[in-house]
C-alpha cells in the first residue's frame, strides 16, 4: 500500500488533520482528522510502500500491545484509511 501523494498534515491547536495540497488532488475537498496514534502512524509511515506488518510494528514499538491486537488494529486502520481515500493499494 501507499500513502496518497499531496496530503499534508496540519496542526490546529492540539488537533491534527490531513489536507490535500497538490494539483493531483484538486478535487479532494475533505479534511481528515487524525487522533494522536493515527497521526503518529501517518508520520512514521514511509512514502514508499508499506503493509499491515509495517503498521503493526509501529504500534508494538510505541504502545504496550501484543502482536495480535496490534495486527487487528492495523487491519482496521487500513480499511478506514482506504475508505477515506488517503491510502491506495
Amino acid at each position: 500500500m501507499k500513502k496518497i501523494k499531496g496530503l499534508v498534515m496540519r496542526k490546529l491547536g492540539s488537533e491534527k488533520l490531513l489536507v490535500a495540497e497538490s494539483l493531483d488532488l484538486i478535487d479532494f475537498n475533505k479534511l481528515i482528522s487524525l487522533n494522536d496514534s493515527a497521526a503518529y502512524i501517518w508520520e512514521s509511515l514511509p512514502d514508499m510502500s508499506f503493509d499491515t506488518e509495517t503498521i503493526t510494528a509501529l504500534l508494538t514499538d510505541r504502545y504496550d500491545v501484543d502482536d495480535d491486537t496490534a495486527r487487528k488494529d492495523a487491519q482496521e486502520l487500513i480499511e478506514v484509511w482506504l475508505q477515506a481515500g488517503i491510502i491506495e493499494i
Binding site: 499531496g6 488533520l17 490535500a20 495540497e21 494539483l23 484538486i26
Partner: peptide, 22 residues
C-alpha cells in the same frame, strides 16, 4: 476546532499547491 477550520477553508482563495501560500 477542525469543524470551524473546515467551514472557513473552502471559502478562502488559495493556490493550495503552492506551499508558501498554503
Amino acid at each position: 476546532g477542525i469543524k470551524a477550520y473546515a467551514s472557513l477553508l473552502p471559502s478562502c482563495s488559495c493556490m493550495k499547491w503552492n506551499h508558501e501560500m498554503a
